[in-house]
Design a protein around this nucleic acid. Structure first.
Lengths: 245, 245
DNA sequence: CCAAAAGTGTTCTTGGTACACCCATGC
DNA sequence: GCATGGGTGTACCAAGAACACTTTTGG
């Protein structure tokens, strides 16, 4: 660890002192794993990269950190610039730093993941012609270490599913129990028992059953529910909100 | 951080092409939260910073990423350079990027945490005169966002305690049940019932009871145990190894 | 009247939690 | 012989897992 032993104390143009001039600088990228749910399946959004290197290959959306923003802001900006989406749940995942991970140039990448409801966010102005939703199990080979990022994101999402009401983010405001169960089955990648699932969810006491039914899928119709954000937040305070399926 | 705005597209000495010349570059630091256990209490290792800015204040140990290494290597190197320790469990925690987090210069820091057994690793050549172990609850105010890093590290460690045999890292090879319980009580910051704890640990079936006793603390003496790494690894394969206390 | 999805409870098993007394030894 | 920490088992309760039939209605 080379500590600048006698760094000069001169102010630079930003009136900031540069104490660490002898250290290497690097490019910091941000890559976003975007999970979407369409009431049936969990998907990820990928794009065909339109610049070198690896132009034309499938990739996560990404960009570079700018001097005047932090990483959360960079991730939000990248998502917004490329998809038009804003006000989206995002969370930092992990930082990838293999020396040769990007053949273009030494780049460290901070991966973020985002959760969106596919149907409610028909990004009208999708800035990328080549963006496409893929089912999790049919995602193509991606550039660099992006497949590894997705694997880690899935396992983080599985953990989050047990400790956060991710339905808030991935489902429309009103949804049926079946849709919620589909969501959990997609995320956990296993079938759940319908009765046990409903009992468990009801015992959490964060949903409100409406008088309204969704008639689009069955003849009988299925009651719609909404999340009760206040109840959820009270629960978090009191006992942390975590469950098992 | 002045990046040459129109760098020539010539191969640099590493025969790498630079595709992203217009992007900002930043300093990437690595900071290490070092947890130690001395058979009774969980502690963290801090140093008095011996260079500007914030010289003389308490701090995590840290250093900067070099061009030819990845972050895991940088964290290992920083730990080794400053403490002489090698072969230590380390794990990447989170990346901190507030624009003004380091008043010296725009710096992004990747936090790592390390687990060591305080007694087995009497770092003979401790390179830092001012390093000191602190109990978790009596740690001083630290520079930058280092206190925040420690909070996050503790909560990660609490999670790890339930899904990994962290005793491998934090205890000497042979240890008593009481020491193991002390470790879990320190990490989880709560008292545990002795009988329930022992029953639970035994049901995990990853410890081997030796015929040998530790006579240093009680007159009766306490049986020593060792971890059975093979059994543990088989368990991870089969059912993931996770428990509750 | 039938196909298709919705809705609904009970039993069994597992695992968590609470709890108190005797043991071995060095002094 | 006593003080100190070591070692041990049971009973209760909560929650998870397995499981099958009836309801509704559009066609």
């Amino acid at each position: 660890m080379e500590i600048p032993k006698e760094a000069k104390l001169s102010k630079d143009i930003n009136t900031q002192l540069n104490f660490y001039q002898k250290e290497d600088q690097v490019l910091l990228a941000v890559d976003c794993i975007i999970f979407g749910f369409d009431k049936t399946n969990l998907k990820i959004l990928l794009i065909k990269r339109n610049f070198e290197p690896e132009k034309g290959k499938w990739s996560l959306i990404g960009g570079f950190l700018k001097k005047n923003e932090n990483l959360d802001q960079a991730a939000t900006r990248v998502l917004n610039t490329l998809t038009g989406l804003s006000d989206i749940y995002m969370e930092q995942l992990y930082t990838y730093s293999k020396v040769d991970r990007d053949p273009g140039q030494r780049t460290i990448s901070v991966a973020y993941f985002a959760l969106i409801d596919v149907d409610s966010h028909q990004f009208d102005g999708i800035q990328i012609d080549s963006a496409r939703w893929f089912d999790l199990d049919e995602a193509p080979e991606l550039i660099f270490d992006h497949n590894e990022m997705i694997r880690k994101a899935i396992s983080r999402l599985q953990r989050r599913a047990m400790t956060m009401p991710i339905g808030f983010e991935l489902l429309p405001e009103k949804f049926t129990m079946r849709q919620l169960q589909n969501l959990y089955e997609s995320i956990l990648d296993k079938k759940l028992d319908k009765r046990n699932f409903i009992n468990k969810i009801n015992s959490l006491d964060v949903l409100v059953k409406l008088d309204e039914k969704d008639m689009t899928v069955s003849r009988k119709g299925a009651y719609l529910y909404v999340f009760d954000k206040e109840k959820y937040e009270k629960k978090v305070e009191e006992d942390g909100f975590s469950f098992k399926l």
